[in-house]
Design a protein around this nucleic acid. Structure first.
Lengths: 217, 217
DNA sequence: GCTATCTGAACGAACGTTCGTTTCGCAAGG
DNA sequence: CCTTGCGAAACGAACGTTCGTTCAGATAGC
């Protein structure tokens, strides 16, 4: 075992935290480097020493900013869930009262969040299980609230007769899933930028909901 | 740190290998226990000692059957990809020549495989990144072949005018994704068994492809 | 008595974490 | 202007534990 290969599961390279999240400084640098490492190797696959090396620090220096490795992950997971929930909530607020427009707004926001912050999406969705229950609980609660937003819109649309779905729960899961798997295959290009991708996901979601869309090739 | 909580990311409990996979014996027991552990805690989160404990063996005994921990994972990942590819290929062979029927067969097989073997699906899709490239390569090649099957059917249907999609690649990704996220939220119930779920995924896929389905509530 | 299987003990390496010390920017005091 | 004191941040070394793995020897079935 001469040189360990650098295994990575993501296409994206540079880790970006949501804008308003954390003031500049070492604490932010730690979170960004940890986001990168946890996203590409997993929480258990990335050590405190790896993290310190990436930051050009000694391992002990990290403990001036976080009480443990788990707390670094917990902070990332918390930030991710808050950014996601806030994004959905804001999108919904500006979408009027029609279920179709509300769904457009939700899917668009969901897709943009996952496309623009792929590492955070991966860490939030996979590494949360590495947290002890008391650190994961707040994020799991937020996640349920976000899922409830989508469910409510679908149910309202169904009640009004504008959506026609064979199974609301499975359809909601399918729509969520569109965004959740994005980090594993998508990267922005000129031929398919995030905006086009969001439009496509909106179109696919409306089709699943039985809403007639514009004709496609 | 008195008792470590048993974190798990899957709803399913009992690990089941595809039928024809491995002859009975200790080797099979090891694979099944490893599948369970790797699926619920991740490769790096489950140790050789955890695995030995689950099998009521001493850690050293495992090395009579596998040369390393990585090779256990590699075997699981290989089996998973082969079962998946074989399942898709067989389904396609029995589906005639009409793109709609071929797509039904592919989506149905894809969904059933993921619903019936959730742990294997998780290990195959997430823990493959813990393998060195030379152990992962054969499985990644198989994965591309499986994706190509779906792409080919979609392209043929589009050429024949029976599918109408805004973007073939994104739609194919969306259809694959339906199955891939299953292990994280689905478990079979009387109200929604695997067969109904497969039918629903077929219906959703056809809707995304612009094929008129039966009316739904 | 050969082969396959498992045990028990041990190896070096890596793990997360702790702790006393050092470094450094900066404001206050003479 | 120089010194002093201080708090924050990082260092360097070490801790106890767990990691994956090795290997000589015990055990058992053919």
């Amino acid at each position: 075992m001469s040189v360990p290969p650098p295994p990575s599961r993501l296409r994206a390279q540079k880790a970006v935290l949501p804008a308003s999240a954390v003031p500049d400084g070492t604490r932010r640098r730690i979170l960004e480097a940890a986001l990168q490492l946890f996203a590409s190797r997993g929480f258990h696959g990335a050590s405190i020493r790896d993290l310190a090396t990436a930051l050009e620090l000694r391992p002990s220096a990290l403990y001036a900013h976080f009480p443990s490795k788990e707390h670094v992950l917990a902070e990332l997971v918390r930030m991710g869930h808050e950014a996601h929930h806030e994004g959905l909530r804001t999108a919904l607020l500006g979408a009027g009262s029609e279920p179709v427009e509300q769904l457009r707004a939700l899917v668009r926001a969901h897709t943009l969040l996952h496309a623009n912050h792929p590492q955070l999406a991966v860490v939030v969705n996979e590494e949360i299980h590495a947290l002890p229950p008391e650190l994961a609980a707040p994020s799991l609660a937020l996640r349920e609230q976000s899922a409830a937003l989508l469910h409510a819109v679908i149910e309202r649309g169904r009640a009004q007769g504008v959506f026609s779905v064979p199974h609301a729960g499975v359809t909601a899961a399918a729509i969520s899933t569109l965004g959740l798997r994005l980090p594993y295959w998508y990267e922005p290009t000129a031929a398919l930028d995030v905006d086009m991708l969001a439009d496509l996901h909106v179109e696919l979601s409306l089709r699943m909901l039985g809403v007639q869309g514009p004709p496609a090739s």
